[in-house]
Simulated scan of single mutants.
Amino acid sequence: MRSARELWEAAYKAVEAADDDALRDLCGADIEIRTSAKHQRGPDALAALFAQQRGLYTGLEKTVDGVIESADGRAMAAELTLSGLPNGTDERLTWGVVETIRADGDRLVSWHAMLDRTWLVQQIQANQR
Score class of each variant (00 low, 15 high):
84 G>P: 00
53 Q>W: 07
67 V>P: 03
91 E>Y: 00
2 R>F: 11
43 P>G: 15
65 D>V: 07
26 L>H: 02
53 Q>T: 14
31 I>V: 15
66 G>Q: 07
103 A>H: 08
58 T>E: 12
27 C>F: 05
95 W>M: 11
107 R>Q: 12
54 R>T: 02
110 S>L: 09
125 Q>G: 09
107 R>M: 02
95 W>L: 13
6 E>A: 11
119 W>K: 13
103 A>W: 12
64 V>D: 10
34 R>H: 04
58 T>S: 13
121 V>D: 14
66 G>F: 04
121 V>F: 11
35 T>C: 06
37 A>N: 14
55 G>H: 03
65 D>E: 15
71 A>D: 13
21 D>R: 11
56 L>C: 10
13 K>P: 02
15 V>K: 00
40 Q>I: 05
87 N>I: 13
16 E>C: 01
59 G>P: 02
48 A>I: 08
39 H>D: 10
70 S>D: 07
58 T>N: 06
41 R>L: 04
44 D>G: 15
104 D>L: 02
48 A>D: 15
29 A>Y: 12
98 V>A: 07
9 E>K: 06
37 A>W: 14
55 G>R: 02
68 I>A: 10
24 R>P: 03
5 R>S: 07
51 A>R: 14
94 T>K: 12
74 R>A: 08
104 D>R: 10
108 L>M: 08
18 A>G: 08
122 Q>R: 11
42 G>I: 00
36 S>G: 14
25 D>M: 00
74 R>N: 12
54 R>N: 02
3 S>F: 02
33 I>W: 13
61 E>Y: 02
49 L>T: 12
80 L>Y: 15
29 A>S: 15
45 A>R: 15
48 A>Y: 09
23 L>S: 01
35 T>G: 09
59 G>C: 04
90 D>Q: 13
98 V>S: 04
7 L>F: 05
35 T>H: 06
3 S>K: 01
1 M>N: 14
17 A>L: 01
67 V>H: 07
75 A>R: 13
32 E>R: 09
123 Q>F: 03
58 T>Q: 10
96 G>S: 11
80 L>G: 02
112 H>T: 12
70 S>P: 04
40 Q>D: 15
66 G>N: 09
70 S>K: 03
121 V>M: 13
2 R>W: 10
37 A>G: 11
112 H>L: 01
18 A>I: 05
32 E>T: 09
55 G>Q: 06
127 N>I: 00
114 M>D: 09
45 A>E: 15
97 V>F: 01
